[in-house]
C-alpha cells in the first residue's frame, strides 16, 4: 500500500518534471508542427561551434536577414569569435554608416562603423520597422535561438518550412505566408532564402537548406556566445567535484566507522 502511494508520488514527480519542459512546446506550437531535430556541431556536452559555418551564417544574416532584422546585442568586435580577423571585421564595419558625435554646430553627423559599434539596425525605431513591414515588427535576432522553443532546430525549420500554396481549407490573411512550423501557420515574413541567394567564399553550395542551417548556427552563437567556454569550464568543474565528493564520501565513512 505504502509502496503504491510512494510510486504514485514518484511517478507524478517524473511526469511533472518532463511535462514542465514540454508545456511551453505544446503551447507555442498549438497548431504548428514541432521542428525536426537536426545534427548540430554545438549540441551535446562536448559540442563546439563550426567557425566556417558561423562565418557563412553571418554572410546570410548580413545579406538577407539584416534587411529587416536587427541584432542589437551583437557588436562588431564580437565577430572575432566566429573566426574573422580584426582587419576583415573593420572592413565590413566600415561599409556601414552610423551616427557620430554632433559636429561643432550641433548638427548630427555620420561616420563609418567601428569595432566597438553594435551591428547596425535596419530601422531607426520600431514604428518605422512596422510601417515598412505591413504592420508586422521583425523581431531582433540576437536572442532568437534562446527565446524560441527548439532553438536552432526551430530557426532551420521555419526558414525551410514555407509552402507556396496554403493547404486547401486554410484561409490566409492579407499578405501572410503559409509556414508549417510557425505558430498558427501564418507568418508575415515572405520566404527569405532563395537557392544560391548568397555566394559562399568557401565554395559551399548555397542551397536553401544550407543557408538556413548556417544562419541558424550563427544565431545560436549570437544568443549564446559563451557556450564553448561554459561547456569547457563545466566539464572541468564537474570532474573536480566528482573527485572531491568521492573523497568526502571516504572521509564521511571513516569518521562514522567508529559508530557503526
Amino acid at each position: 500500500m505504502i509502496r503504491t502511494f510512494k510510486r504514485i508520488a514518484v511517478a507524478a514527480a517524473l511526469l511533472a518534471a518532463f511535462s514542465v519542459s514540454d508545456v511551453s512546446t505544446s503551447r507555442a506550437a498549438s497548431k504548428a508542427t514541432p521542428p525536426p531535430p537536426q545534427d548540430w556541431s554545438f549540441s551535446g556536452v562536448f559540442g563546439t561551434f563550426d567557425r566556417a559555418q558561423l562565418q557563412r551564417g553571418y554572410l546570410v544574416y548580413r545579406e538577407v536577414c539584416a534587411a529587416c532584422h536587427s541584432m542589437k546585442q551583437v557588436y562588431f568586435r564580437h565577430l572575432v569569435d566566429i573566426g574573422l580577423s580584426e582587419n576583415a571585421i573593420k572592413a565590413i564595419a566600415a561599409e556601414f554608416e552610423v551616427a557620430g558625435e554632433p559636429d561643432e554646430d550641433g548638427e548630427p553627423t555620420e561616420r563609418p562603423a567601428r569595432l566597438f559599434d553594435r551591428l547596425p539596425s535596419p530601422y531607426a525605431n520600431d514604428n518605422e520597422a512596422r510601417s515598412a513591414n505591413n504592420g508586422a515588427l521583425p523581431p531582433d535576432l540576437s536572442l532568437i535561438a534562446k527565446s524560441r522553443v527548439g532553438g536552432a532546430d526551430y530557426i532551420h525549420a521555419l526558414l525551410t518550412g514555407y509552402l507556396e500554396k496554403a493547404p486547401a481549407g486554410v484561409t490566409m490573411g492579407e499578405g501572410m505566408n503559409y509556414n508549417t512550423y510557425f505558430a498558427a501557420n501564418q507568418i508575415a515574413m515572405a520566404p527569405p532564402l532563395a537557392e544560391d541567394g548568397v555566394e559562399y567564399e568557401d565554395g559551399t553550395k548555397a542551397s536553401v537548406d544550407q543557408q538556413a542551417r548556417d544562419v541558424a548556427a550563427f544565431m545560436t552563437w549570437a544568443a549564446e556566445p559563451e557556450m564553448e567556454e561554459r561547456k569547457r569550464m563545466g566539464i572541468k568543474v564537474l570532474l573536480f567535484l566528482i573527485i572531491l565528493t568521492a573523497m568526502l564520501y571516504a572521509v564521511k565513512r571513516r569518521v562514522w566507522s567508529d559508530l557503526h
Partner: peptide
C-alpha cells in the same frame, strides 16, 4: 585522507 580532502 582528511588532509588531502581539505587541501582539494
Amino acid at each position: 585522507l582528511l588532509t588531502s580532502t581539505i587541501v582539494v
